[in-house]
Amino acid sequence: MLRETGLLLAAGLVLAGCGEEASRPVSGGVYEEYAMMEAEPAPAPPPPAARMQASNDAVSVSGSRVQNAEGAAEAAEGPLLAYTYQTSLELPADALGSTHEAHVQACQNAGPATCQVIRAQVSNADGPRPSAYLQLRAAPDWIVSFRAGLETEAEELGGQVLSDQTSVEDLTTRIVDTAARVQAQTTLRDRLQQLLETRDGDLSDLLAVERELANVQANLDAQASVLAALRQRVNTSMLTLNYQAERQVVEPQTFNPIGRAFKEMGDVFAESVASLILFLAGALPWLVIAVPVISGVIIGFRRLLRRRKAKT
């Protein structure tokens, strides 16, 4: 049993080396000793064609089947590419919202298997300068057909396509490598399960194999998820649409300051009159006292001047 265990663990570490990271070796001096004594030389890594062929198989992960890379034939015919499109549209303000809604509806009518709305947003819908945003993930054929009619649709509405960008990412290497890791982890998991089913050996040895099996299964689930995400990026394309309202030569908000000034003119005049009334109300008591005093001073000064003239 120990000899068989050592052989299986050594083979498992070699298979895991083809994957993302080698699984953690099972602890215990007996396992390590037999692994060093009995392990055969590690086989050479499979050629790219063999790795791609191995990735064509479907593997079982946590009870569900996950589709791997499509195999050597597809990879040999051409690279696995992920396309991303970005288009900016300038439309009349009164047509922007309805156009955005029509595009969302077109994606929904195609069905979730063909097109999915990732994000849809409309800003300042009732204002003079509305804007909108739409992000779709759809089948490449649907995306091509949809984009082909955008320019004509914009021109019919009195708008235009401001920009149209296409970016491509080659995912061939990542998909093939990830598929090989999934295959290696699957083989290692199956061998550990077979070893565990024999139920022969000490309890500590069986517990060590169970821990190793749990680590391998966790790595397998993670790699299968990454592979599924990469395959989705190849099988579908991402389209981002930005909508903005057409800028007018003279927009209504240009004369807003003048309109606000006329509207506030009455308030400013009333406040000024009120301030004057308050000032007069505060100064009136002082005027009652100051006027007689000032008048007396002026009369006395004039009399003094007359007397001096009379003496001279």
Rank of each mutant, 00 (worst) to 15 (best):
G12L: 15
A73E: 02
Y34S: 13
E212T: 06
L136R: 00
A16K: 00
L192R: 00
I118F: 04
Q244N: 07
A113W: 09
L15M: 11
E74S: 07
G149Q: 10
Q121S: 13
T198C: 05
I118G: 09
V209Y: 12
P25D: 14
A148N: 14
S27K: 04
A22Y: 09
I294K: 11
N215A: 15
L304Q: 13
I289G: 08
Q193H: 11
L91G: 01
A16E: 15
T87V: 06
G296F: 11
A228G: 06
D57W: 10
R174N: 06
A82F: 01
V234S: 00
S123W: 10
E212I: 10
M36P: 09
A73P: 04
V61H: 01
A224Q: 03
I258R: 04
D57S: 11
A218H: 10
N256G: 07
Y31A: 00
P46L: 12
G127R: 03
E20V: 15
D94F: 13
V226K: 00
Q244H: 15
A218D: 10
D57M: 05
A310R: 14
T84H: 12
K263D: 13
K311I: 07
A110K: 00
V226I: 12
A222H: 02
R199L: 14
T254W: 14
R302Q: 02
D267A: 12
R303E: 04
L241M: 07
D200S: 04
V291N: 02
T84N: 06
Q183T: 15
C18I: 07
L227A: 01
A93D: 15
G78R: 06
A138V: 03
L196H: 03
A261P: 08
S60F: 09
R147W: 09
L2F: 09
L9G: 00
A214S: 03
R233L: 02
L195T: 02
A214F: 04
T186L: 05
A69N: 06
A113R: 01
